[in-house]
Every structure is written in C-alpha cells, then in structure tokens.
C-alpha cells in the first residue's frame, strides 16, 4: 500500500518537470516523420532501430540518474517516516521506469499502430521497452554508488558509452584476433553480456534472418531458426534488469545517506 503511494507521488513529481512529455513528443514527431518520409516499413523500422539502440538508453539512464539526485530531499523526508527503505527505493524505481516506458510506448507505439509495423515493429517496441528498463536499473545502480551527482552522471554516461560502443569494439577485436577458431558459442555468450547487443540481435532476427542463416554450425541454426533466440535473449535481458536494481537496493538499504 505504501509502495503505490510512493509511486504516485514520484509520478506526479516526474510529470511536473515536463521532461517526460518532451521526450514523448520527440519520439512521436520523429517516428511520424520517418513514416511520412519513407513508404517502406522495413526502412522505417531500421531508422527507428538506431533511435532505440542509441537514444532510448541514453535518455533513460541520464534522466533516471538526474531524477534520483533531484529527489534526494524527498527520499530523506520519506526515510524520516515509518516507511521501509526497500519500499521507497522500489517505489522510485517503478515510477521512473513506468513513466519512461510509457513515454516510449506512446511516442513510438502509437504512430506504429496507425501506420502498421508488422512483427518487426512489435519486436522493436519490445526491445525498446526492455532496454529502457535495463538502463533505468543501471542508472539507479550508478546513483547509489556515489553521493556526488556529477560523478553519478559520469558513471551513468560511462555505462551507456561502454554498452553502445566500447563493448562492441572489444568484441570485434576478439573476433578479429581469434578468427581461426570456432567462435560461434563464444560470441553468442559475449553478446549476452551486453543488453544493447541483445536487443540488436532480436532486431537482426527480424530484419536480417536470411543473412544470419548463412552460418556454419547447428548451434547457430537452432538459435536463429527457432523461437529459441527470442526466449534466450528475453531471459538474459530480464537478468539485466533485475541484477543491477537488486544490487542497488542492497547498497541503498545499508547506505548512510
């Protein structure tokens, strides 16, 4: 009961800053513009995919971190009340995650519903929502790691930079160095260590399945050819949502605020 009230108050607070509304509007306008400019749905989905893989994680992680520090006083006030720390923290998390997911679903989902996006559109919405949740989790983790707001934003940006660019660079270096070895299982395992890559592969399964089927090894064929790819990546994404927020919660409960 206490949780829903916390969520409600945080939610009102988020709406007051109007950032979420701007974010929704930005997604809405750019999605509609893309559908207007191009008649080929596949190409629109492709352009939207770049937004989902780059912009959505960035906005999610930075906004969540800033919001956490802005509501520090509110959190301190709540802590003076007889409310469980766990309830406060999870209430914050759910309110932020819900509003960002809602913004994304409304901004991208509504135009897609009108123009029609097919299965690849649904996959895009799904992976965008999952990525939002993952990066809100990571933002909460970086927020509890330090007391300094600037430092926390720095850590958050580092997370984003690492998962969007640095990790792929490392992965490519590994692939290049060990190209003479059978790398199928290794690369797949390495990919699951990065939520952005996982979301990207979910999209590849929709957009580039013909090319992905061109690979040796029954393992790949099984992974890409069946629904196993979807189940596997969903499970790993779920782990990526739960683990950071769980770790952040543990730190927050023991932390001297």
């Amino acid at each position: 009961m206490a949780m829903t009230r916390v969520i409600k108050y945080v939610f009102y607070d988020i709406l007051r800053t109007r950032f979420i509304l701007l974010y929704t509007l930005f997604l809405l306008v750019s999605t509609i513009a893309m559908f207007q400019l191009d008649t080929d749905t596949g190409k629109v989905i492709l352009s939207l995919m770049n937004i989902v893989l780059m912009v959505v994680p960035l906005v999610s992680i930075v906004f969540s971190t800033i919001h956490f520090f802005n509501s520090y006083e509110f959190i301190e006030l709540l802590l003076a009340q007889p409310v469980n720390r766990k309830v406060i923290f999870l209430g914050e998390y759910f309110a932020v995650a819900f509003s960002l997911c809602f913004a994304f679903a409304a901004g991208v989902g509504l135009p897609m519903f009108f123009y029609g996006g097919g299965t690849s559109g649904i996959t895009l919405l799904y992976s965008g929502t999952m990525l939002t949740l993952v990066f809100v989790s990571l933002a909460f983790l970086s927020s509890v790691l330090t007391r300094d707001k600037a430092k926390a934003i720095g850590i958050a940006l580092l997370f984003w930079f690492y998962f969007s660019l640095i990790y792929d660079g490392l992965l490519m270096w590994i692939i290049y160095t060990f190209m003479d070895y059978p790398l199928e299982k290794v690369t797949l395992a390495l990919v699951s260590l990065n939520p952005v890559d996982l979301a990207r592969i979910l999209m590849l399964l929709q957009l580039d399945i013909s090319a992905l089927m061109g690979y040796t090894g029954a393992f790949y064929k099984e992974f890409f050819g069946s629904s196993m790819g979807l189940v596997f990546s969903s499970l790993v994404l779920l782990v990526w949502i739960i683990i950071p927020v769980w770790g952040a919660l543990r730190i927050f409960i023991r932390k001297d605020l």
Binding site: L46, M49, N50, L53, M54, S164, L165, D168, G169, L171, M172, I175, Y176, M179, L183, E184, T187, L188, V191, V196, D197, R200, I201, M203, L204, L207, D208, A211, L212, G214, Y215, T216
Partner: peptide, 12 residues
Amino acid sequence: IPTAVLLWRSFL
C-alpha cells in the same frame, strides 16, 4: 570473418 555478422547494425 563470417562470425562478425553478429555485430551488423551496431553503432560501431
């Protein structure tokens, strides 16, 4: 390197 197709469409 056929395995490298897994990085297709990434920002890098």
